[in-house]
């Protein structure tokens, strides 16, 4: 019976969303509890990083549903790019500890720009996690203007992206990789591309143009 089928689907969707709601609430409590512990202990920092990564995966899971059900629809609000980067940097410092320097460059950033903060946070956080794994000493977060678009970048002083990844930027197919890098970049591309202002679309830009040949992850927003 089709009626029953759709009833069941509806029930399933309700259960799913209630479950997700709980998961996010519990994750929220877990994060705040971990943050209430002293960050001097490397074990605590590791736990925070792991918690962040679990969250990354959960968020990606949700995005997968959104992508499957149709296009991603950004909710545009005006945000200050400096504030946005500062938040990323301070969060990254909380789990990076002494191992890496995380710097910011935002002199050329506008006062405000319209974008979906949550989506951009996902994309940039994921890029930060990747940079964290590959950087030797330093990660640089930057915001500036490029071709009339806001450019948000994460660059590191590691070995740079392998050729395979550089070629795949903008690829519409779902990548399959063990460490999650591919999936993160796939979403970053989707997120960038979903941003649209009067017909101009955003895009993802990957290169190895940082001073030491390290990876530069950039999102351009119209």
């Amino acid at each position: 019976m089709p009626e029953n089928g759709s009833d069941q689907a509806l029930q399933m969707a309700t259960l799913l969303s209630a479950n997700l709601h709980d998961t996010k609430n519990l994750m929220g409590q877990l994060m705040l509890r971990l943050d209430a512990l002293s960050g001097d202990d490397p074990g605590v920092r590791d736990a925070r990083f792991l918690c962040q990564q679990v969250n990354d995966r959960m968020v990606q899971l949700l995005l997968l549903f959104e992508v499957r059900d149709g296009e991603l629809k950004p909710q545009y609000e005006a945000h200050n790019p400096e504030d946005f980067l500062l938040e990323l940097r301070e969060n990254a410092r909380a789990w990076a500890g002494e191992r890496l320097r995380i710097e910011m460059r935002d002199d050329a950033a506008p006062d405000y720009w319209y974008f979906d903060r949550t989506l951009l946070e996902m994309a940039m956080m994921n890029a930060l996690h990747n940079a964290f794994r590959h950087a030797r000493q330093e990660i640089i977060l930057s915001a500036g203007m490029h071709d009339g678009m806001l450019q948000l970048s994460v660059s590191d002083d590691g070995a740079g992206y392998p050729q395979g990844i550089l070629h795949s930027a903008g690829d519409e197919r779902l990548p399959v990789s063990q460490d999650g890098t591919g999936l993160g970049l796939f979403f970053a591309g989707k997120i960038a591309n979903a941003h649209n202002n009067r017909g101009v679309r955003g895009r993802l830009k990957l290169d190895n143009a940082s001073s030491g040949g390290g990876a530069v992850f950039s999102i351009l927003l119209p």
Binding site: M27, G28, L30, M31, D35, D83, L86, E87
Partner: peptide, 11 residues
């Protein structure tokens, strides 16, 4: 948006 870190809330 939950979950968020204490650092995010502070900022």
């Amino acid at each position: 948006l939950k979950p968020f870190t204490a650092e995010t809330m502070r900022l």
